[in-house]
Computed example of a mutant assay.
Amino acid sequence: MAEHTGERGCPDAADLALLEQWNTLQSGFRRLTDQLLADVDSKAGIAPSEFQVLWYLLTSPEQSAPMNQLAATLNFTTAGTTKVADRLTEAGLIRRQTSSADRRVVLATLTAQGQEVAMAAALALAGALRDRVVTPLGPDAFTALADRMRALDPHPQRPCR
């Protein structure tokens, strides 16, 4: 791959175009994600951080995960994860308990009500995705885009085998 450098190490026209394309991608994705999560909030009454936790637990084995795993996977701070878990516990959507295998580990587990709320929120997100992404792009283009992003993921999530 050739290096592109203009005068005094400044980006040349090709680099500037590349950087602008990247800016368009990342800022557009961030705004789209914010809007999709706002749609979930308005339809299901779940704040974005709460939805992320509920969705993660809904798709986890036994609908349970260690709190530190939640924080790491969702890129939350420990304090942020605790605050979200406190709100979800108070709302009756999750319960926290120590692991029977290791008392140092605190598990977050969906309650029956949490399952219902998580499913309603997931369906709200699916509807928002259809409206805001799949319809404008078309199903084939959306699938191709998802496949290309999966190919670029430096840390793809793969189930243990």
Score class of each variant (00 low, 15 high):
A91T: 01
E62T: 13
F29I: 12
K83I: 05
E20T: 01
R30G: 03
A151W: 06
R148A: 05
G127A: 03
R30W: 08
N68C: 07
D131L: 07
Q157R: 13
R161T: 15
L70C: 00
L57I: 00
Q157M: 14
L123I: 07
R95H: 09
V84W: 01
I46A: 10
D131P: 08
E3N: 13
A17D: 03
R96T: 03
P11G: 09
T111H: 01
T135V: 15
D140S: 05
L70Y: 00
A65P: 09
P139I: 15
R95E: 04
L32N: 09
E7W: 12
Q69V: 12
L58N: 03
L37N: 06
L70P: 00
R161C: 15
A144R: 02
V53H: 00
Q113M: 05
T5A: 15
P159H: 11
E7S: 10
A47T: 08
V106A: 11
R96K: 13
C10N: 15
R158I: 10
D39K: 05
E50F: 00
L32G: 15
V133C: 02
T73A: 10
R8C: 06
P139C: 08
Q97A: 12
A118S: 12
R132V: 01
E7N: 14
F76L: 05
L110G: 04
T5K: 09
V117S: 08
T82F: 05
A13C: 09
V133K: 04
S49N: 07
E90T: 13
L88I: 11
L145R: 02
A141P: 04
L110P: 03
D12G: 09
K43C: 10
E50S: 05
R103K: 09
A101W: 13
E50A: 06
L137P: 04
P156F: 12
A120K: 10
T98K: 15
R87A: 03
K43R: 13
V117D: 06
L74G: 04
R150A: 07
V106F: 11
R130D: 08
W22K: 12
T81E: 01
T82E: 06
A47N: 07
M149S: 06
G80H: 01
Q97V: 12
S27W: 15
S64D: 13
D34N: 10
Q97F: 09
L36M: 03
D153M: 00
T24V: 12
F51P: 07
R87G: 10
T5H: 12
T109S: 11
L152N: 08
Q157T: 13
D15R: 10
K83Y: 05
I94A: 05
A65I: 04
G114F: 07
L123D: 14
G28P: 13
G28D: 02
N75C: 00
K43W: 04
G45Y: 04
A44K: 06
L16D: 07
T33E: 15
T78V: 13
D102H: 12
L145W: 07
R104E: 12
K43Q: 11
T82H: 11
H4M: 05
I94N: 01
F76E: 00
F29M: 15
D147T: 02
Q97M: 02
R158Y: 10
L18E: 03
A124H: 02
A124D: 01
A71W: 02
T111Y: 07
T77D: 03
R30D: 10
A151K: 10
A108V: 01
A91N: 11
M1F: 14
E62M: 12
D102Q: 10
A65L: 11
S100A: 13
